[in-house]
Design a protein around this nucleic acid. Sequence first.
DNA 1: TCAAGATGATCAG
DNA 2: TGATCCTCTTGAT
Length: 259
Amino acid sequence: MPEGHTLFRLAADFQRVFGERAVEASSPQGRFAESAASIDGRVVESAESAGKHLFVRFDDDQILHVHLGLIGAFAIGAGPPPAPVGAVRLRLVGPTSYADLRGAITCELISTDKLEQVLGGLGPDPLRSDADPDRAFARIRKSGKPIGALLLDQRVVAGVGNVFRAELLFRARLHPLTPGVRVSKRRWNGIWADLVDLMVRGVETGRIDTVRPEHVDHGGEVYVYRRQGRPCHVCSSMVRTQVLQGRNLFWCPTCQRRR
DNA sequence: TCAAGATGATCAG
DNA sequence: TGATCCTCTTGAT
């Protein structure tokens, strides 16, 4: 479930479990064997996330860069690790816990220069206190692309995925195909504040929970994401879907009218 | 039991 | 735009 809040939690978990500790590294699947050997026995100095990227810094300045992609997962477990199940690309084992990486699209060792390069390509991350929403708006206001496409562009905002996109636009009552150039500064400021709020809550709970209490009487709900053909929680219109740039878009045709 | 689709991003054409 | 990476869940058979 890798959107920005997932990576933020993962980095915090890494810091708590492996921080300041030496780890054994291996690649049961074999595809990362050489790099695993290179960090085997090193001490983890720090772990942090930026958007959907995870960076783990070791005491010899090597940096592990992981991007989970659509299907990847970095599972942390307590105690001694069991025999690897499935294609475990990287396994880290510390004194009290272990972590298994599967299915990631990126798993590599990088230098500080490359780290700067990756960070430089990302828009502001709502979970970082130094994030500047105006930097994102500067791109949005001069683009004719739909706001729904711009929100998924990691150069615009780092960490937003398909769930946050769908829910943010619903909560803002904004149609996903509205061109960026038509989104006002005031509107964007509201969306950004809502995004920060939702992602911070996502970090706390580990879930994406977006429905306001007055609209549903239990938790674990979303307004439109993957609810196509089902009634909107607010107005009972049927939620719609459409593929935009290869990704599924969801919206309520009544609450999010095209202007 | 098996196929399809999914919260992502890159690359070829 | 479609194929690809590669894993897991869901729903159809």
